[in-house]
């Protein structure tokens, strides 16, 4: 316990880094992933703006990025990361690969959630003279909102796990802390304690997510 007490400042810094990375990763990946998922939904075969060629390209791109093991993706895009944040090391540098790996996850999940929205409601909106933008914002997002909240929860938990790997390029964060101070320095109690903290963090994310999603869902 003493060792943990000694490491408290580093642990607090690590938590801070996790939240910092989490905030930016989720904002960026949701900001790009949700529109991309919406676009996939709108242009998929049989949908309102069917466009097979563009759908095929985007769909494949989403699959390819999702297939990449995160560690390899992170290293493969180092030149791009350097271009965006000016460096390939550190907390800011980690946000780039984390966001890129989360965008297609977001897109795919959002596309699937939108498919569950009743087609009849969309037809109703069309009969009222709604534009596509109005259908997306006033019908699709409203009817799918609890599913969207679920998606954010799922990606947040994935993020906690992936951010551990990001320690390799000096990202820091709570997972990196567990590996560096617990695993590499042979301090099993530190590792154990940190893992407990991570479990609690995931529990909190999951519970909060569920509460929000239930509150948003008026279908049952």
């Amino acid at each position: 316990m003493e060792k943990i007490y000694e490491l408290m400042p580093q642990l607090i810094t690590a938590f801070g880094q996790t939240f910092y990375m989490g905030f930016f990763t989720l904002t960026i990946s949701a900001g790009l992933g949700i529109p991309l998922g919406t676009l996939l939904y709108l242009i998929r075969p049989g949908s309102m703006f069917e466009h097979r060629k563009i759908y095929w390209i985007l769909d494949s791109l989403v699959n390819i990025i999702r297939s990449f093991p995160f560690l390899i993706l992170m290293i493969a895009i180092i030149p791009f990361t350097r271009l965006i944040v000016g460096t390939s090391l550190g907390t800011n540098a980690v946000i780039v690969p984390l966001s890129i790996s989360a965008i297609p996850d977001f897109a795919r999940l959002i596309e699937q959630i939108m498919l569950d929205v009743n087609r009849g409601v969309i037809e109703m909106a069309e009969s009222c003279g709604a534009t596509t933008f109005q259908i997306v914002t006033k019908v699709l997002y409203r009817e799918a909102r609890s599913g969207i909240a679920n998606t954010v929860t799922i990606i947040s938990v994935l993020f906690v796990s992936y951010s551990t790997i990001a320690g390799v390029i000096g990202g820091g964060g709570i997972g990196d802390f567990a590996i560096r101070y617990g695993y590499y320095r042979y301090q099993p109690e530190v590792m154990f304690f940190t893992v407990i903290l991570i479990i609690m963090l995931v529990q909190i994310i999951q519970t909060t997510g569920r509460i929000i999603s239930t509150a948003l869902d008026k279908r049952v």
Binding site: N118, G120, V121, E123, M124, E126, S127, C128, G129, A130, T131, V139, R142, E143, R145, S146, L216, D217, K218, R219
Partner: peptide, 22 residues
């Protein structure tokens, strides 16, 4: 123009098609 005209034609459906979250 078509969207404008549709605003003046109401429609109801067999399965009501209400917004569940509204």
């Amino acid at each position: 123009e078509l969207l404008k005209r549709r605003q003046k034609v109401g429609m109801i459906f067999q399965h009501y098609n209400l917004l569940q979250n509204a």
